[in-house]
Design a binder for these strands. Sequence first.
RNA 1: GGGCGUGUGGCCUAGCCUGGAUAAGGCACCGGCCUUCUAAGUCGGUAACCGCGGGUUCGAAUCCCGCCACGUCCGCCA
Length: 575
Amino acid sequence: MIRKKTSGDLITKPLLQNTLTPYKIPFEIRIQIPPGSLGDFAFPCFPLAPLLKKSPQQIAQDIAHTLPQSPWVKRVEAQAGYVNFFIDTNRLAVETLFAIQKQKDTYGHLKKKNKKVIIEHTSANPNGPLHVGRARNPIIGDSLVRIYRAAGYNVESQFYVDDMGKQVAILAWGVQHLKKQDIPPTENPKADHQLVGFYQVANEHLEKDASVADQITDIVKKLEQGDHDTIQMIHSAYAPVLEGMKQSLSRINIQIDSFIPESTFVYDTSVDHVVTSLKQTPYCHEEDNAYYLDMESFGIHGRNTKFFFLRRDGTTLYATRDIAYHQWKAKQADLLIDILGEDHRLESQQVKIALELLNTTILPKVVFYAFVSLPGGKMSTRRGRVVYLDDLIDECIEHAYEEVKKRRAGELTETQMRRIAEQVGLGSLRYNIIKVQPEKDIVFTWEDALNFEGNAIPFIQYAHARACSILSKKDTKEPPIDATVLNHPSELQLIKKLAELPLVIDDASNACKPHSVANYLYEVASTFNQFYRDCPVLSEQNPLLRSSRLALVSATTIVLRNTLDILGISAPEEM
RNA sequence: GGGCGUGUGGCCUAGCCUGGAUAAGGCACCGGCCUUCUAAGUCGGUAACCGCGGGUUCGAAUCCCGCCACGUCCGCCA
């Protein structure tokens, strides 16, 4: 269908603006990309028809004839009420290849913006290993971190550690009161896997035994009062779990810059200031010594529009501390981004409203994702109904290994095959999650998760490996290149695609849409495969064409590698 | 009961914000292409009343209204 891209705007808008100004058109000029080979950009004239009292076809003719020259536009055609622009492909080829060759690793990266953005992601309760139900969070988060870095921002990633909640309290109780033999054995030696059993069994006690419930309530209360010893005790219980999470994240190429414990904002009393300030707003009401904001006038609907921020016993709530956290972040950044599960939609909106009431100027942009569920329903750490991220990672790599072995067993060494399997397996995991928009529901099946067919990472990595293979066979002394000899439709298609990367990054960062980068990546690989089919490189007799094609192949590897890197995926040189 | 999100060939996804020329890919299915750079590739074919019903418009998958299905939330939990 029609894709709207801003690239055409830069080239065609000034020309159109010039021609159309006399008509005083009361709306913005919109450029689109026409289907097939009708042109590179198009301007539809239908909206002008009633204004000018002429047919769109006639208007298109008139505009096409009066447009000024542009170095980028080679030809203009009027067709079926559209003005179609054909760009100068020679110029595009020269400039694109030059830019890629010159910028190499930074091609696609935009100029520094001197702006700081804090991206908060993952922030999972440290009560057990990361599971696939929320695996979208780190992957979307880290991809956005990379996209924003490429877009020229100074980025800090943060993991908000919930060290004050009931979940960690249950874990801590379990660690203190249960023995190792009370816990079902686990094969995985990582601390998070070893400790999650304590959390699960503690939950069973909690459900059956009222005194356990009291003890846990007591722990939570002490935490909220800022009791130093309790916070320390909690910390020693969850720290190994968090360490295990970090290891899992590190396996899928994710490093988080800062871990911010929730208790920070109780300790430094900033949460008390939030309470004091919220009490002074006109929306604050008291009920039984507890305080809430009435959110009805802010468009919050439902059975209860009361947003409680202070309990009867004077302690704060999760959301209250979250407000303090966001105020703190807002002081150090120009832009805030949160990656949250869809269950946080209401809470996040309430926090935003509270922040506005407190005159916080920088409000978070929030990316919500739908959970990855199992065919029978939601995943649950408590009930042990989960697929752990670590297990999925292992399976992906193992499956990739089987596939490599099937194809290359005689040709590659064991080490090479293991290395490729890791690159493909890990890439597959990230790609399968990032390629769909976050709001879409995903039901986890091993079949889909391990799918290497079609629009999947091996297709893309394979294109890169093929390109590398060509480059590895070239002569050391190739003649200089002339990009204007690249006139085959498949060459031009590829060049146009490579030229899009900076726009894709700009768009994906502004709209917080990492999946559009994945879609672009697929298009590059697909376009390259068509070029590979149509345009032999090494066997090309004309030395100038051969060297120019080699340059195009080299440029493609750079674009594939850079784009893969922006998604945290590695680019194997052989497969 | 209310809010928010999602609904596109048999299955999965893009396009929706910012309405335009034959609704674009993948899987599956059928039929081609390895004496030429890696066939994890490539070409062709079959397959869609874009959830349903209205409306706005010269033009609607896209905007507006109503309805339906699924998900999610509506705690002095986190």
